[in-house]
Amino acid sequence: MNRDRNLFSREEMLEMNIEMLKSRGVSVDEIAKIAFRQQSKWKDNISYQECVESVEKILSLRDVFHILQLGAEIDRLTEENAFKGPIQSILATDLGMFGIDELFGIELAGLYGTIGKTNFGDIDVNKPGIVSELNEKGKGEKKACHTFLDDIVGAVAAAASTRVAQIENELEARKDPSIIEEPKLF
């Protein structure tokens, strides 16, 4: 695939996002586990496969592609001490008052509305699974920078969880015999 262009198909963006996540130590499976955990709080019959499919759907979106690629690159450049002045230290220490990383997460999760943002807030505060691991790796002896990635991964999980809920609600609504049109699942 020629990566020296600026427009990519959804399949290409999904592939590049999965590659970027893998290079930073994150798998689709780990994100899907968080989405499953998040959505299982509210519905008993959620399938794990629905969560995997939702994570992949989210990772194929253009806005998500831009957010993930930019955030991961900022983290990588921070690890290489590529920034000058106080921003290098702010990024490297994941300064709590910085907040721009959370804006990336809120924007991404917000693609799935207010509930997406609410789910992101819960994940951001409680840091389940890989989100916690990414956050802690930035504080260890051999510091990796995941200032942006932990929030982006949490936001993808939040959006995927919300997408699963929307699909489930749509399917439930379609049990009403007065609805005759075919569903268009997001």
Rank of each mutant, 00 (worst) to 15 (best):
I90R: 14
R10T: 10
G110F: 03
R5W: 05
F120H: 05
L149Q: 01
F8Y: 13
V164H: 04
C145R: 03
T114E: 15
E107N: 11
G113T: 06
A157H: 04
G121Y: 11
W42G: 04
P183V: 08
H146W: 04
G25W: 04
L91C: 02
T78C: 00
E73H: 03
E15R: 15
S47P: 00
G96D: 05
G138F: 01
I90G: 06
A109T: 07
K43D: 12
S40D: 06
P128H: 05
S47W: 03
P128N: 07
L171A: 09
A82E: 10
F83D: 06
A158V: 01
A144I: 09
V28R: 09
F104P: 02
K41T: 12
I106T: 12
S89D: 14
E172V: 08
D63W: 07
G113Q: 05
M97S: 15
E168M: 04
M13N: 02
K43H: 12
D176V: 07
L59P: 06
G96W: 04
M97F: 09
N17P: 06
I67K: 04
F104D: 00
Q69C: 02
L95A: 11
V164I: 11
V125M: 11
L61I: 11
S23N: 07
L185E: 05
N81V: 00
D44F: 09
P86M: 13
V131D: 03
E172Q: 14
Y112E: 14
E15N: 10
Y48R: 07
L7M: 13
V64A: 10
T147I: 00
L103K: 04
E12T: 01
D44V: 04
T93N: 14
V131Y: 02
L134A: 09
M16Q: 12
C51T: 08
R174S: 10
E107A: 13
P128L: 06
T93S: 13
D63A: 11
L171E: 12
M97H: 09
V164K: 08
F8G: 03
P183N: 07
L7G: 04
V28W: 04
S40E: 05
A173G: 11
Y112W: 13
N119F: 13
K137F: 10
V156N: 08
K139R: 15
M1G: 15
P177E: 15
P128S: 02
E133Y: 09
S161L: 00
V156Y: 06
R174A: 12
E15Q: 12
F120Q: 00
I106Y: 14
T114P: 06
A157I: 05
F65H: 11
E11T: 06
A35Q: 02
L108F: 08
K137I: 07
V52N: 09
Q69N: 08
G99S: 07
F98G: 03
I18F: 00
K84D: 12
G71H: 01
N135V: 03
K33P: 02
G113L: 09
E30K: 08
A157T: 03
T118A: 15
V28Y: 08
F36L: 03
N126S: 14
L91R: 02
F148T: 01
M16E: 11
R37T: 13
V26A: 07
E80Q: 14
L77T: 03
W42H: 12
L7W: 10
C145E: 05
I115F: 10
I100L: 15
K33F: 02
K184V: 14
I106H: 02
G140R: 15
R5L: 12
E15Y: 07
S178F: 10
I179F: 08
E12L: 02
